[in-house]
Simulated scan of single mutants.
Amino acid sequence: MHPPAGLELPGTRRPLRGLLPDVARSLGAVLPDLPGAGLDLSAGERAVVVLVDGLGAEALTARAGHAPVLRGMLADAAAAGEPHASAGYPSTTAASLGSFGTGRSPGETGLLGYSLRCPDAAALGLPPADQLVNLVSWTAGPGAPVPDARTWQPLPTVFERFEGASTAIGKSKFAGSGLTTAALRGATFVPADRWDDAVEATLTALRRPGLVYLYWGALDAVGHQRGWAAPEWGEELAALDAGLRTLLRRAPRGTTVLVTADHGMVDVTERLDVAETPALREQVVLVAGEPRALHVHLEPGAEIGAAHERWAEALGERAWVLTGADAAAGGLFGPVADRNRALIGDLVVALTGTTAVVDSRSQSAASLRLVGMHGSLTTAELAVPALVTRT
């Protein structure tokens, strides 16, 4: 497959899904079936992975003046080689956390987007607006069953395969959630609802040997509402950096620290609404995914080739439009397990530039107004930091 100008295929950098296996191996884990990311890590007893939701490599480089600790780590990593990793497609939290936690592709985990069509939608006779399953909140529309996380994503996580102590730290609302279960099960979850408390919980967990995972999502939230170029984003980055300084200063000697992210972000300047665009609306029953990375589901009996032509003509250079079959066969989602093929849309659409395709028939008014978005194949969305230091 050859994406249009402005887009790139995942895999041009070290893979995000290989980072956690590399860290676990440095602590003695044996994971022969999982690809690594090529991190040069010394063997040790303790490691912490800090995953910052929405901290794209391009945005970090542009706003590094707010983050002296991260700026220093970025300079050190650049001098040593490749400072960045690449998320898979789609470049979104559910897909990336699933790949990060299991070492597998989105096509293997089934975490193929922010939202997906309920596999039983047709059999249940659900109206289109109720057919979406949200893989971040792990909720479903009225009348749709909320999927069991272990059934949806049955592959073992790195934490389940790690024989030492492992701890996952994040906000209390994520304790036992579907996404936490799908991507991170096996680690002991420790809730922390403030950034300073999360840092302290990490330091507490590091008192004993083992693997610690710290997730923080505040930067992503600000980016969605204000954009990564906004002053508020820089302020949140500065607060994050201050906590990292504390972590690095107080972590036990010899601790490996990796800072990474699940995706980057673009600030959207153009929105096209499927509901108000006849060429996009024709024969489309449901749009899943998100506005930068769409799964388009057509009416039963609709001609997929004709729909592909309509979408490609309507969007032009603003998007890469593929049939779902071609996207899967071409490896866009990585290897795709048979059980997950029906989750992929009849059309798969990756946006270029700063355009978004929304659908007011199924999206909330608040989501239609988001400034920062992600999911597609631009460098701004795919490239994430992979910054390693040792205390």
Rank of each mutant, 00 (worst) to 15 (best):
V285P: 00
L116K: 08
E160S: 14
D193P: 02
R46F: 00
G186N: 10
V146L: 13
L382T: 08
T92R: 00
V284Y: 04
A293H: 00
F162I: 06
L322A: 03
R25K: 12
R361F: 13
G98L: 12
A129F: 11
A238K: 02
T378E: 12
V321N: 03
R310L: 06
A149R: 01
R226D: 04
G103D: 10
L237N: 00
V222C: 10
G353N: 01
A62Q: 06
L382K: 04
V284P: 01
D220L: 05
G28Q: 14
G227K: 00
L55G: 05
A165Q: 12
R253K: 15
V136C: 14
D338L: 04
G170T: 05
D40M: 07
P147H: 09
P68G: 09
S86W: 01
K173G: 09
L16R: 08
E282D: 11
P209W: 03
E290W: 06
A239K: 02
S376R: 07
H224F: 03
P231M: 14
P3G: 00
A342I: 12
L55K: 07
P278V: 14
P385Y: 07
R207Y: 12
T256K: 08
V348Y: 04
E303V: 09
A85H: 02
E232K: 10
P231S: 11
Y89I: 10
E108Q: 10
T354L: 14
A37F: 08
A261C: 05
A43M: 12
T391F: 10
T167H: 02
G11D: 04
A24E: 00
V30L: 11
T102C: 06
R339P: 00
R390V: 08
I344H: 04
G176A: 14
T260H: 14
P231W: 13
G234N: 06
V222L: 11
G301R: 00
G331F: 04
D22G: 15
A79V: 13
L240F: 08
A201L: 05
R208N: 10
G345H: 05
L51I: 11
E236M: 14
M73H: 05
F100K: 03
A5F: 08
G18H: 05
A221K: 11
S137A: 15
R194L: 01
L343V: 05
D53L: 13
A302M: 11
H84Q: 11
T256D: 04
R207C: 13
G289N: 05
G186W: 14
P128K: 08
R339E: 09
R339V: 11
E290V: 02
A62F: 04
V222S: 08
A356R: 02
L203Y: 13
D326A: 15
R117V: 05
I344D: 00
W138S: 12
R253W: 12
L97G: 10
L31T: 01
L111S: 02
A79K: 15
L132V: 11
A383N: 09
L34H: 06
E235R: 12
L179D: 10
D196T: 12
A242H: 07
G143C: 07
G305H: 06
V349T: 05
N340L: 07
F100G: 03
G18F: 00
E282I: 08
N134A: 15
T354F: 12
D53V: 11
D346P: 03
D196C: 09
R369F: 09
L39H: 02
T61N: 13
